[in-house]
Design a protein around this nucleic acid. Structure first.
Length: 589
RNA sequence: GCCGGUGUAGCUCAGUGGUUAGAGCGAACGACUCAUAAUCGUUAGGUCGGUGGUUCGAUCCCACCCAUCGGCACCA
């Protein structure tokens, strides 16, 4: 019985391009799991989109004298391009600036209101007279009352580390134009997290969470230990989802970007369902079935987002009622660059769009998966990238596929018919079965690095088998024995191809065809047209990923025509390291 | 400041209250030549961040310290 699985991926903020850390932490692991689950025959819906609201976008737009839509139009297409190039198989990658999202967000807001989980309260906001608007705390600076630092930020003093409130600062001013800040009362809607705390705890404690990553659990427990308080979910802004309250006081306020962004996980399936002409299909991923089975859901995010996905979003869902809560929130750590934390302000970052055309997509996917920040911060180092590419991807796996295919194709032209098996053949067949089982188990448990490692270990065992059996000699001395060895080796690389497809979809599809198959095992996304709320054209990433069971050990039939081998991966020259490091240094501020 | 994560061979990382702490890569040496100078074998390499404690015994538990990263709720 196929399972229904929502693969929810963090919504990238659309005020800039994204870097390899975002890929490693969210989009790639999500894609690997989505592809794996689809190949197992499960019904997967993988969604995300550009996060279009919030003050940084408003401010960026104003600084340039353009509409926020222009900022979106600048970066959203680069996201699509990266996902297309790398083969991130979204069912729908949309944006929060859509009619659908506005409608769903509004409805969800009203449901929470009706259920009594929203309340009105007045808070004090930092107001810029010159800009005529309220500013987020961190856009305010002033003198720290503790250490006297004249440039303490409104949320925290960088010098003494004290947490601050903008009103505590001496001579508060805007960091945007240096003009003085005044404080004004402002009314907002709050999510009543305190009232949702009990159901939230019941949900968290209600099932075994030992499969969650330790860091995810630790963050969540930490938040709960400190107790939950109401959280403002509206802002004094003019860009965003309007607050659906018939009160002039809320006319120039908008729903807070964080509240609307997480709702994207829920709204995107509506858009997906409508686009394919089955408007109710979203329910399969959100509403428990009549027999009580609840759809599974995974939320792939960075560790900085944990509380929003393990506390706030579940609280919103509980407040709404009747919807499936996250099954797991596999939060990843961060990816450093050459040992240093990435910094967008210094431009110490490796932008996806800068490397996606210089290297094969599977080369990038391989390094990011093999080096994924699953349990701790990981590091992108160019010398490591080149080394691992050459020794593990090219030499161990690519070369294995290449050598087996070459000997078999040149000497037989088809998958040869095996004779009686020797113990060595049986040992490899057994190792392949074990490898298949352990990779499957690791993937199901979201241990992606480990899964990849298991697959590579099987590739190495196959290289050992070839060294022992020497089929290149057997083809001259004992043709039947050669046929048996090559049949066994071909089946193993065919199985490895399957195991590696979630990680390396492009090259696996190619090998699939070299092995004489004609169907698609690694479908790719494509771009479709859509319309934005203002009537302008926009684009989404979509895909048609047939639910065909492909996750099985090889049953490669004897006699299937083989195609001449060609290298699956490009070897990288050591000079790449210096080139890339020079490029990186040149671009750093 | 408070809370939490991480610190294991040159590199990237596994791992366990108990005899000689592991893998891959890199290095040295050897074998092979089907394959993208790829592959296979052998060897070398670590006071498991530091100090103290609990224990018959700790890399694994506890305390403190050091380094590093993050959270501390209106930054997404």
């Amino acid at each position: 019985m196929p399972e229904t699985i929502l693969v929810a991926v963090a919504w990238p903020y659309v005020n800039g391009p994204f870097h390899v850390g975002h890929l490693a932490g969210a989009y790639l692991p999500a894609d690997i799991v989505a592809r794996f689950e689809r190949m197992r025959g499960n019904r997967v819906l993988m969604v995300s989109g550009s996060d279009c609201h919030g003050s940084p976008i408003t401010l960026a737009a104003e600084r340039e004298g353009v509409a926020p839509q222009e900022i979106i139009a600048r970066f959203h297409p680069t996201f699509l391009k990266t996902f297309m190039t790398l083969g991130i198989s979204f069912d729908l990658f949309t944006q929060t600036y859509t009619e659908n999202h506005y409608r769903v967000t509004t409805e969800l807001f009203l449901t929470l209101l009706a259920n009594g989980y929203l309340y009105r309260d007045t808070m004090t906001g930092s107001y810029s007279e010159t800009l005529g608007r309220f500013l987020p705390d961190r856009f305010v600076e002033g003198r720290c009352p503790t250490c006297g630092n004249p440039r303490a930020r409104g949320d925290q003093c960088d010098q003494c580390g004290q947490l601050r409130d903008p009103q505590e600062l001496g001579e508060p001013r805007s960091i945007l134009d240096g003009a003085p800040i005044t404080f004004r009362p402002t009314e907002h809607m709050f999510l009543d997290l305190a009232r949702l705390e009990a159901p939230l705890r019941a949900w968290l404690d209600g099932s075994d969470r030992s499969g969650w990553r330790p860091n995810t659990l630790a963050f969540t427990q930490n938040w709960l230990r400190e107790g939950l308080h109401g959280r403002a979910i509206t802002r004094d802004l003019e860009w965003g989802v309007p607050v659906p309250i018939a009160d002039p006081a809320f006319a120039d306020k908008r729903i807070y970007v964080w509240f609307d962004a997480v709702i994207g996980y829920y709204s995107a399936p509506f858009e997906w369902a409508e686009r394919r002409g089955t408007p109710d299909a979203w329910r399969d991923w959100w509403v428990p079935a009549a027999d009580g089975t609840t759809p599974r859901s995974y939320y792939f995010i960075g560790k900085d987002n944990i509380p929003f996905h393990t506390i706030i979003w579940p609280a919103i869902l509980l407040g709404h009622g009747g919807l499936a809560l996250p099954s797991d929130v596999p939060a990843n750590e961060f990816l450093n660059l050459e040992g240093e934390k990435m910094s967008t302000s210094r431009n110490w970052a490796l932008w996806a769009r800068d490397i996606e055309d210089r290297y094969q997509p599977d080369q990038i996917r391989f390094y990011l998966a093999a080096n994924a920040p699953e349990n701790r911060d990981a590091n992108w180092s160019w010398s490591d990238f080149v080394q691992r590419n050459n020794s593990e991807l090219v030499a161990n796996w690519g070369n294995l596929a290449n050598r087996v295919l070459t000997i078999a194709q040149r000497n037989f032209g088809v998958v040869p018919t095996p004779g009686a098996l020797h113990p060595a053949d049986e040992a490899l067949i057994a190792a392949t079965a074990r490898g298949f089982a352990s990779v499957t188990e690791a993937l199901a448990a979201l241990r992606l690095r480990a899964a990849l490692g298991e697959a590579l270990a099987l590739a190495q065992a196959t290289n050992q088998y070839l060294s022992d059996q020497e089929p290149w000699k057997l083809v001259r001395s004992d043709r039947e024995r050669a046929a048996t060895v090559l049949h066994t080796a071909l089946r193993t690389i065919d199985t490895l191809k399957t195991l590696l497809t979630p990680f390396l979809p492009h090259s696996s599809q190619r090998l699939h065809q070299l092995l004489g198959y004609t169907d698609t095992i690694a479908p790719m996304p494509h771009i479709e047209d859509a319309i934005a709320p203002d009537g302008s054209p926009r684009e989404v990433l979509a895909g048609d990923y047939p639910a065909v069971q492909h996750w099985a050990p090889s049953a490669l039939p004897a006699g299937q025509v083989l195609h001449p081998a060609e290298p699956l991966f490009r070897r990288l020259d050591e000079s790449v390291v210096d080139e890339e490091l020079a490029r990186l240094r040149a671009s750093t501020r």
